[in-house]
């Protein structure tokens, strides 16, 4: 299945944000739940092997968008049991304009046994765009060995690279390496950018890294911080990321 959903904001009357485009493409269904707030709703199982899904987000200058999801995404192998599973892919592209803000915090992606998945995220930010982008990956359902997954995340601010990260999950020799994920079964990160001291979500912590148990707030080489966390389970991962996010954005 190939699907491409599109979401775009535009400045509305009175400084509010309106959704200029909201085009669902099953299995990605978009549902507006408030001004500038959209839920991703899966209207079919998957992604399944062979699916090629895309979501394009355009946050116009000066507007604000908040994207969430109702449930976690379960990545499953393709419908042809026995044969080598086909790869599924999910590609998200987001442009965040000058003075715009985007909060993207869906529920985790769970890699079911046997899946072969590719996740690609590309963020293009204006220098003063405010972004909170959270990603959580869970290595298999309870007690299950994960399938394979490769992710690539690129965030570029004003044309300069801010953060480039790839994760590979599903190679047992690497997954359990004390250098990579150690004992963890979940990995996650939240990229936070924006000018310090802006109203709304508090001020962005500058300078020093902050570390906790299984999480760290890492100030990047460019204008932003990454909250990075490892955890034994999804609930623990969320707690650690939220702790880091709070440390990065003190109220």
């Amino acid at each position: 299945m190939t699907a491409r959903a599109v979401l775009a904001t535009a400045p509305g009357p009175g400084g509010r944000t309106v959704l200029a485009t909201m085009r669902s493409a099953p299995p990605i269904t978009l549902r507006r739940t408030g001004p500038g707030q959209v839920y991703l709703v899966a209207t079919a199982a998957g992604p399944l092997g062979g699916d090629d899904l895309a979501l394009d987000i355009d946050v116009a200058p000066g507007t604000a968008l908040d994207v969430r999801s109702v449930a976690s995404t379960l990545v499953l192998p393709g419908p042809r049991p026995g044969s080598a599973p086909e790869e599924s892919s999910m590609t998200i592209t987001a442009r965040i304009g000058a003075g715009a803000s985007l909060r993207f915090a869906p529920e985790p992606t769970v890699l079911a046994a046997g899946c072969r998945h590719r996740m690609t995220v590309r963020l293009e930010l204006a220098p003063d765009a405010r972004v909170l982008w959270r990603e959580e990956i869970v290595f298999g359902r309870y007690g299950e060995a994960p399938g394979r997954c490769r992710t690539r995340f690129d965030a570029v601010v004003g044309g300069r690279p801010l953060l480039r990260q790839e994760f590979t999950v599903g190679d047992p020799a690497i997954d359990a390496s004390p250098a990579v994920y150690g004992d963890a079964r979940c990995v996650g990160g939240t990229l936070i950018t924006g000018p310090p001291g802006t109203a709304g979500s508090g001020s962005l912590l500058a300078g020093e890294a902050v570390i906790g148990d299984g999480w760290a707030v890492l100030p990047l080489a460019g204008p932003g911080v990454l909250v990075s966390a490892l955890a034994p389970d999804a609930a623990g991962l969320r707690r650690r990321l939220e702790r880091g996010e709070t440390a990065a954005l003190p109220r």
Binding site: D154, R164, E166, F167, P178, G182, G214, A229
Partner: peptide, 9 residues
């Protein structure tokens, strides 16, 4: 751009 979160921590 392969990252190693454990090495970062």
């Amino acid at each position: 751009a392969h990252s190693a979160p454990a090495l970062d921590l």
